[in-house]
Design a protein around this nucleic acid. Structure first.
Length: 581
RNA sequence: GGCCCCGUAGCUCAACUGGAUAGAGCACCUGCCUUCUAAGCAGGUUGUUGCAGGUUCGAGUCCUGCCGGGGUCGCCA
C-alpha cells in the first residue's frame, strides 16, 4: 500500500472516532475523502479535503471539523503537524522517520516498490499496432507500438494479467493489392518491365519478396492469369510482410503474446456466430442508411444492407455488417474478433488505434457493449500524429510513393531506447514532434538524456564510494542508519520517491503511460538538484570522506532513486544506463 | 453539415481525473563557473487556461452554446 493510502486510512480512522464521540453524525460516507500531495510543498507533505467534503452532509463548518480532526491525527507519532488552511484543507507534516522509511522500503523491495494491486489479477487484453500486413511499419505505427507496449507494461506492473495482441488484417481487399504488387516484382525479377498501376504498392521492400517468389516457383506464374496465382500469392506475400513486421517490432524490443489473424475468422463460423449473437439480441436488421449530412457523395444511392443497430449502444448511426453482394464488410470480422476476446474471459479490453481511426471508436464500443451485455469495458486509446524533423526540415511520409519514413529508419538512427522514451513524452492524444537531432542532444532540454543521466550519476556515485573504500553493497545500504538523512533537501527527494506507487496507480487507472515518463523526469530533476546543492554545501555530497556511516545513508537515498528510475524505465521498455557515452 | 480529439506563459508542454496563489523546460534579465560534484549553477520576469454562460464550498478539469485547428464520415481495412 502506498503512503498516501496509509495516511488516508489514518484519516478515516480518526473520522470514525469523531463519529463515535458524537462530533460527526452517524452514517456519513467517507468515499470522497482524499489524501493527496499538496500542489505547493510549502503547504505541507500531505493534505486532506475531509473537512470540506463532510461539511455539507454533517452540517458543520469545515474549519471546525478540520480542527477536531487535527487533534486526533496529532496522536499518531508519524504526524508532526496538522494545520487548517484555506477553505478547510488540513495540511499534514510527517516525521522524517516516515520519509527515511520510504528509502528503506525502496531498497528492500527493489523494482517491486511501486508495484500495485489495483489490477487485482484482472485479465486485460491490449491490442496494438495491428498494422495492415502490406509493408514495413512506419513512424505512425511506431508511436502506437511504443504506447501500447508501455501501457501493457504499466498494467502488468499495476497487477493486471496482460495479454499483448496484434490483429492481422490479412483477409481484406488490400491483400489482393499486395499480392498483385508482389507479382509485379516477381515479373521484374524475371527481367520484365513493370508499371505499378491501380494503386499497387511501389515500395522497394517488395523487391526481395518478388525475388524470393522466383526462387521458390521459378517461372511457373509468368504469363498466367490471376486465377492461377492470386490465392497463393496472398499467403506468400502476407507471410513475408509479417516476417518484416515482426522483425521491426523485435528491433523496438516489442514481443506480442499473440498475432490474431483476420483470415482465420473466415470459414470457422465465428463471424456468423458473432452476428447471430447480436441478432439474438434484436440488434441486426435489413434497412437503409441516410446519406451523411453536409457531404453528399455524387454516387450516393439508397441500398438495402444488413445493419447493426449500434445506436442502441451509443453510436450515432447504425453500421453495415454485410455488403450488398452478400460478403462481410470489414466491420463484421472486427466484431467477431472482439466477440472472441470477450469470450476469452477478459475483464477489460483496450484497443490502441491511430487517430485516423477515431471515427471507428463508437461502433467498436457499441459492439463490445452489445456482445458482452455491458459487462466488459472497452477503452480505445488513439495515438496522434508524429511529425518528423531533421535540420529544421520536416520529413514527408507517403506510403503510395514508397518513400515513407519507417520504424527502421528511426530506430537505426537513434536506437530503441531513445525512440521509446521520446514517443512517451507526450500524451497519446497530443501530436508529437520528433527531431532526430534534438533527441540525441545531451542537455537538460532532452528528457531522455536527463533521466538516463540521473541513473548513470547514481552509478557513478557508487563507483566513487567504492574508490573511497566505502562499502556500498545493497545489504550494507539496507542496514544504513537512515536517521542521518535529515536535511530538507534529502527528505524532499524521499518524498518524491513516496509518490511513485501512487503515481503508478493513477497512470494505470487512466491508461496513460506518459505519466511515468513525466514522473521520471521530475525525479531525475530532484536528484540532479540535490547533487548541485552539494556543490555549495559539501555536507550534502553523497560521498563523505572519512565518514562511511553518513555516506552510506546518503548513498542509500541515491540508490533508491536509481531503483525507481530503473523500475520506471522498465515499464516503458527502456534500459537504464550505468555510464553515459 | 454530423461525430471525435485538441486549444494553458513569447515557444514546446504538464497539471495527481473537482482542490488552495495554474507549474516545468526553452527564450529573456541578473549574478556565478582557474580549485571543490559544472555534458553548467543560483535567482528573477512571464497567464482573461480560445470566448460566453451553467453546476459546485471550489472549475484548466464537469455541462450547454459559440470561435479556431486537426481527424473522420454507407459495399477500403
Amino acid at each position: 500500500m502506498n503512503l498516501f493510502a496509509e495516511m488516508r486510512f489514518l484519516v478515516i480512522a480518526a473520522l470514525d472516532k469523531m463519529t463515535v464521540a458524537g462530533e460527526l453524525p452517524e452514517g456519513l460516507s467517507f468515499d470522497n475523502v482524499a489524501v493527496e500531495p499538496p500542489r505547493d510543498a510549502l503547504h505541507g507533505d500531505m493534505a486532506t479535503n475531509a473537512a470540506m467534503v463532510l461539511a455539507k452532509p454533517s452540517r458543520h463548518k469545515p474549519r471546525d471539523i478540520a480542527e477536531k480532526l487535527a487533534g486526533y491525527l496529532m496522536q499518531d507519532a508519524r504526524i508532526t503537524a496538522a494545520d487548517v488552511a484555506g477553505p478547510g484543507f488540513l495540511n499534514l507534516r510527517l516525521a522524517p522517520a516516515v520519509w527515511q522509511g520510504i528509502v528503506k522500503k525502496t531498497l528492500e523491495q527493489g523494482a517491486a516498490f511501486g508495484r500495485s494491486s489495483v489490477g487485482a489479477g484482472r485479465r486485460v487484453n491490449v491490442e496494438y499496432v495491428s498494422a495492415n500486413p502490406t509493408g514495413p511499419l512506419h513512424v505512425g505505427h511506431t508511436r502506437g507500438a511504443v504506447f501500447g507496449d508501455a501501457l501493457a507494461g504499466l498494467l502488468d506492473y499495476a497487477g493486471y494479467e496482460v495479454t499483448r495482441e496484434y490483429y492481422v488484417n490479412d483477409g481484406g481487399a488490400q491483400v489482393d493489392v499486395l499480392a498483385r504488387s508482389v507479382y509485379l516484382r516477381y515479373l521484374e525479377a524475371h527481367g520484365q518491365d513493370v508499371a505499378f498501376e491501380d494503386g499497387t504498392y511501389p515500395g522497394d521492400y517488395l523487391i526481395p519478396v518478388g525475388q524470393a517468389l522466383k526462387d521458390k516457383v521459378g517461372d511457373a506464374f509468368v504469363g498466367k492469369g490471376e486465377q492461377f496465382w492470386l490465392a497463393e500469392l496472398r499467403e506468400f506475400a502476407t507471410e513475408a510482410m509479417m516476417t518484416l513486421i515482426r522483425a521491426d517490432l523485435a528491433q523496438l524490443g516489442i514481443k506480442m503474446d499473440r498475432f490474431y489473424s483476420e483470415k482465420s475468422l473466415y470459414g470457422t463460423g465465428l463471424i456468423e456466430a458473432a452476428i447471430e449473437d447480436l441478432r439474438g439480441k434484436g440488434l441486426i436488421y435489413e434497412g437503409y442508411l441516410d446519406p451523411p449530412k453536409g457531404k453528399k457523395p455524387d454516387d450516393w444511392e439508397p441500398r438495402e444492407q444488413t445493419l447493426f443497430k449500434s445506436t442502441e449502444h451509443g453510436d450515432d448511426v447504425d453500421r453495415p455488417v454485410m455488403k450488398s453482394d452478400g460478403s462481410w464488410t470489414y466491420f463484421a470480422p472486427d466484431i467477431a474478433y472482439h466477440y472472441d476476446k470477450v469470450n476469452r474471459g477478459y475483464d477489460l479490453l483496450i484497443d490502441v488505434f491511430g487517430a485516423d481511426h477515431g471515427g471507428y471508436v463508437k461502433r467498436m464500443k457499441a459492439a463490445v457493449s452489445a456482445l458482452s451485455g455491458g459487462q466488459v469495458p472497452l477503452d480505445v486509446k488513439l495515438t496522434q500524429l508524429v511529425k518528423l524533423f531533421k535540420n529544421g526540415e520536416p520529413f514527408k511520409m507517403s506510403k503510395r510513393a514508397g518513400t515513407f519514413v519507417t520504424l527502421r529508419d528511426v530506430v537505426d538512427q537513434v536506437g530503441p531506447d531513445v525512440t521509446r522514451f521520446v514517443m512517451l513524452t507526450r500524451k497519446n492524444d497530443a501530436p508529437l514532434d520528433f527531431d532526430f537531432d534534438k533527441v540525441l542532444e545531451q542537455s537538460r532540454e532532452n528528457p531522455v538524456f536527463y533521466v538516463q543521466y540521473a541513473h548513470a550519476r547514481v552509478c557513478s556515485v557508487l563507483r566513487k564510494a567504492a574508490e573511497a573504500k566505502i562499502e556500498v553493497s545493497d545489504a550494507t545500504l539496507l542496514a544504513a542508519d537512515l536517521s542521518k538523512l535529515d536535511h530538507q533537501a534529502e527528505l524532499a527527494v524521499a518524498r518524491k520517491l513516496a509518490e511513485w506507487p501512487r503515481l503508478v496507480e493513477i497512470a494505470a487507472r487512466s491508461n496513460e503511460p506518459h505519466r511515468i515518463a513525466f514522473y521520471l523526469y521530475e525525479l531525475a530533476g530532484d536528484l540532479h538538484g540535490l547533487w548541485n546543492k552539494g556543490h555549495d554545501e559539501p555536507g550534502l555530497r553523497f560521498v563523505q570522506e572519512d565518514d562511511s556511516a553518513t555516506s552510506q545513508a546518503k548513498i542509500a537515498l541515491a540508490r533508491a532513486v536509481a531503483v525507481v528510475i530503473s523500475a520506471g524505465l522498465g515499464i516503458l521498455g527502456v534500459k537504464p544506463m550505468d555510464v553515459m557515452r
